[in-house]
């Protein structure tokens, strides 16, 4: 029986030698280096101007930029590799040629999965290493051994995140008749998850939990001041803010992006709005496990679904 290895090795070789793969990794690396340098210099000059101390340590300075650049790169890699995995073979006629051989369909698609997982791992690892290396050069700060351990976990979860998008893309590629359809739908879905859902979440939270009790006073001469709320009002505002955050998170949690962000916040030890290195790696993993589970489930469910769709598809 032809092994999964036969399919996986050819597929892997195709991916890593493809222009698309090389360009993607190269462009990302260049964009990251330029972006990192410009952001760091801007923040540095602002901090010096305002007399604010810069965060200390490698992750303190680089974590948010590395994480945010990976939050764009990983889905793009996943979509780029998955969007034509099946539909491309169908369009080129190679699917017919391959399926005319004594090969089970599950062998074929499993080989593709394995090749993609390896290729995604390589792409994410290269991008992360370029990220980290670039950060060391630009920031002039060397990571500690704990930073390196956290960065290794960051790479692992970035691969998982990219695979969850690969799963979505290959599912769409299996269903779609044409690659253009699966590309359009994959990219649209990514844009919705990345940009639209967070905005919608904020709007819904604002509608259902408006924050009341903050009084803005306009003084003669155009000056605006906010009336200091009473302790009771302050308590209410805090509760309303918490309720809004709960609604926002509940809506955002339908996207893989949200779970990746949460994992990375726990693993790299920074939280929104400031650095929080108080969590150990173990504590970070314990806190992040529900989010890790969601990403694993997204990857598994989409891969199993595309497998089932592919097995049942008619060759015509």
């Amino acid at each position: 029986m032809p092994s999964v290895y036969t399919v996986a090795s050819r597929e892997f070789s195709d991916i890593i030698h493809s222009k698309r793969f090389i360009i993607l990794v190269a462009v990302f690396s260049i964009v990251f280096m330029v972006g990192m340098a410009s952001i760091y210099l801007t923040v540095l000059s602002m901090a010096q101007g305002l007399g604010i101390a810069m965060p200390t340590g490698f992750l303190g300075r680089a974590a948010s930029i590395i994480a945010s650049s990976m939050s764009y790169f990983a889905p793009i890699v996943g979509i780029a590799l998955g969007c034509d995995a099946i539909s491309g073979e169908r369009e080129k006629g190679t699917l017919k040629t391959i399926l005319a051989q004594p090969i089970y369909r599950d062998t074929f698609i499993t080989g593709k999965f394995i090749a993609a997982i390896l290729a995604v791992s390589i792409a994410v690892s290269i991008a992360s290493l370029v990220n980290v290396g670039g950060s060391i050069v630009i920031l002039g700060v060397t990571p500690t051994s704990e930073d390196i351990a956290r960065l290794a976990l960051f790479i692992v979860f970035s691969i998982l995140y990219a695979i969850s998008y690969y799963g979505i893309a290959i599912l769409l590629s299996t269903i779609a008749r044409r690659t253009t359809q699966s590309v359009i739908v994959s990219v649209t879905l990514w844009a919705i998850f990345t940009f639209a859902i967070p905005i919608i979440a904020s709007l819904v939270a604002y509608m259902y939990r408006p924050i009341t009790g903050i009084e803005i006073i306009q003084r003669p001469g155009g000056n605006v001041t906010i009336r200091r709320p009473s302790p009771e009002e302050m308590q209410r505002i805090i509760e309303q803010t918490r309720a809004r955050a709960t609604i926002t998170e509940a809506i955002n949690s339908i996207t893989p992006n949200y779970h990746f962000t949460k994992i990375i916040q726990y693993i790299l030890g920074f939280m929104q709005g400031g650095l929080n290195q108080s969590l150990s790696i173990y504590q970070g993993l314990v806190s992040a496990w529900p989010n890790i589970l969601v990403l694993v489930l997204v990857a598994c469910i989409t891969l199993i679904a595309s497998y089932m769709v592919f097995i049942r598809q008619e060759a015509r």
């Binding site: 195709d14 006629g93 190679t94 040629t97």
Partner: peptide, 12 residues
């Protein structure tokens, strides 16, 4: 040996 209609090869 089957030569399907609309078959294809890996062009690269």
């Amino acid at each position: 040996g089957f030569l399907p209609e609309g078959f294809g090869f890996y062009e690269h």
